[in-house]
Every structure is written in C-alpha cells, then in structure tokens.
C-alpha cells in the first residue's frame, strides 16, 4: 500500500487533501491509492443536500455537522460549486458559513468545482466520497447548488438526499415539479420563520401525497430555521430514520449497488474518452475524421463506428 493511502486510512488531513487533489487531476498515483482503499469503505452514511441558491444550505450543513459532532461522529463535507465554462476557473465560497468548523479535527471540508462536462458532477466526487469514507468519517455530506444535472447525479451517490426549499421563493414548488421531485428522501423547508411557511409545507405535502401513494414510505417534509438552530435535531433523527428504513427494506444495498454501477460507468467513460481524445496516435485520426465530416466526405455515425471499431479490435 502506498504511503498516501495508508495515511488516508489513518485520517491524516494533509494526505486526504492531497489524494483528493490527485484524484481530481486524474493522476495515476491516485488510481493506485484508490484501488487499495476501496476495501476500507462503505461505512459512512452519504447525505446529498441540494436546493436553490439562497435556501440556506451552507448554514444548515453547518448546524447539522455541529449536531453530529455532539454525538461524537466525524463528518466530511464536499461543497460543490459550478466551474466557469469560459475560464475553467471557479469561485468556491460555501465554506464561508462553515469556517467555525475549520479547526475541528473531526471535520474535513473540501470545496470542488464541477469541472466536468455538461453541468453534471465531476467524476472525482465518487473518489472524494470514497476517500472521506476510508479516512474514517461517519457521515459524508455532499452539497450542490441549483437544480441541474449535478443534483440528479448526487442521488446516484448519496444514500439519503435532502432537498432544501424556502417559503416565499415562488419558484420552489415549480422547481420540484420541474423534475427533482423524485430525488428527495427528505424535504426541508428552511427559513421557516418567514411568512408563507404553512403554505409551502402544504403544497409540498400535497405533491408528496401524489408521488408516494401506494408506497410504504412517505417522504417527510420538515421545517428548520438553520440560523437559529431550530429543527436540526429532528432533521438528524429523520436522516437516521431514512437510513434505518433503507437497511430494513434491503434498499440500502440496492442503492449502493447503483452507486457503484454509476461509478464504474463513469470510470470506463473517462478512460475511454481519454484513450480516444488524449492519446497522441489516436487523436490525429479523430481530427482527420472531423475534417472529413466537415467536408461531407463521411457522416458522423460512420466516423464513430470507425473509431469504435479500432478500439474493439
């Protein structure tokens, strides 16, 4: 086992941090380390948290984490913000509301840019979850912003997914209808000290009633005021309840299996794309084919078949 992998298993922050960087950069050192730590993973409860901007996610995560820390649990947090499609850079500011946790040895926070394609999650998130899990974190929280592919992707990784809404934000309900209805295991209406909270809860519950009719578990709708630490204990209980429910119904393993499937597909996809587009010998051929497509000498499908044919040979 490499030093870095061994130190990650011991929970050393610098090694955890460095391995994440290597994994993000697709460094071969990371690949070797990832191979050895996998057998030490699986114990962490992975919680996905998503919701629109301004819903108070970061504050909620801060309070949740403090609650877990009171119970003596170690927490890893992955805060994901979009990478600029223009520059490839990113401004990662989710830590601002969690800085009080920075010096707590039982907490590890990492900010990530999406980097990846099509607005989805960067494939490195799978690695980061495994790294934090292997390093002994009992809870791993993944935070994403907005309502896009990244949010749907979170579900593939998380055991329990929270969707955060706020009252009075007219588009909240629209958001749910627009497609993330299915992803929530728990709804949280944060900033519940604002007017319109009853209405928001009622609207979500009526949607939940329709979606969950005939199912053995009804998605709970909780209210919190994160900045005043209200409703957090109840939320932690509900998150535990969900995990127990998954275990009891054997859904836990089914979901985990889905996560590994997604991860496997992602690794293969990444490797394959690298092979096709990054290898010097192959890349020339690709460029040539693109020229030919432009000149109508060949169509895109035939070109693709030609490339795949070469790989499969």
């Amino acid at each position: 086992m490499s030093d870095i992998a061994a130190n990650v298993l011991k929970g050393d922050p610098r090694s955890i941090a460095r391995l994440i960087t290597l994994a993000e950069n697709n460094d071969p050192v990371a690949t070797e380390a990832m191979k050895t730590i996998h057998e030490h993973t699986g114990d962490a409860h992975v919680i996905g948290i998503t919701g629109v901007m301004g819903s108070g996610k970061s504050t909620l995560i801060y309070e949740l984490t403090r609650e877990y820390r009171k119970k003596g649990l170690k927490v890893g947090i992955i805060a994901i913000d979009p990478t600029s499609p223009f520059s490839g850079g990113a401004l990662l500011g989710d830590r601002i509301r969690m800085m009080e946790l920075a010096t707590d040895e039982g907490v590890f926070i990492r900010s990530m840019g999406t980097r990846g394609m099509l607005g989805g999650l960067t494939s490195a998130v799978y690695d980061v979850v495994e790294i934090l899990d292997a390093s002994g974190k009992d809870v791993v929280i993944i935070e994403t912003v907005g309502v896009g592919q990244a949010e749907v992707d979170v579900v593939k990784i998380a055991d329990t997914t929270l969707v955060i809404l706020v009252p009075g934000l007219g588009d909240s309900i629209q958001t749910i209808k627009a497609g993330i209805m299915e992803i929530a295991d728990i709804y949280v209406v944060n900033k519940a000290d604002r007017s319109g909270v009853e209405q928001a809860v009622a609207e979500i519950e009526s949607l939940v009633d329709i979606a969950c009719s005939g199912k053995d578990r009804k998605t709970p709708v909780l209210t919190t005021v994160a900045k005043e630490n209200k409703g957090i204990i109840k939320l932690v209980d509900e998150i535990d309840n969900h995990k127990n429910y998954l275990k009891k119904t054997k859904m836990f393993d089914v979901q985990r299996r889905k996560r590994y499937e997604a991860e496997l597909v992602e690794i293969i996809r990444k490797r394959l794309m690298n092979f096709i587009f990054d290898e010097s010998t192959f890349k020339g051929k690709v460029e040539l084919l693109i020229d030919q497509i432009s000149k109508k000498e060949v169509d895109p499908y035939t070109a693709a078949e030609e490339i795949l044919g070469k790989i499969l040979k």
Partner: peptide
C-alpha cells in the same frame, strides 16, 4: 479554483483550510 474564506479569520482557521483544500 478560488476558495474564499469570508471575513474575520484566525491564522489557525486559514491554515487548516489551506490544508484541507490542498
């Protein structure tokens, strides 16, 4: 990739963040 801490940071907070964020 820029991580912004926000205001009022102690040296300990800054350094621990620098470590975690590598």
């Amino acid at each position: 990739e820029v991580i912004y801490t926000g205001l009022h940071q102690t040296a300990e907070m800054i350094v621990d963040t620098a470590i975690q964020e590598d």
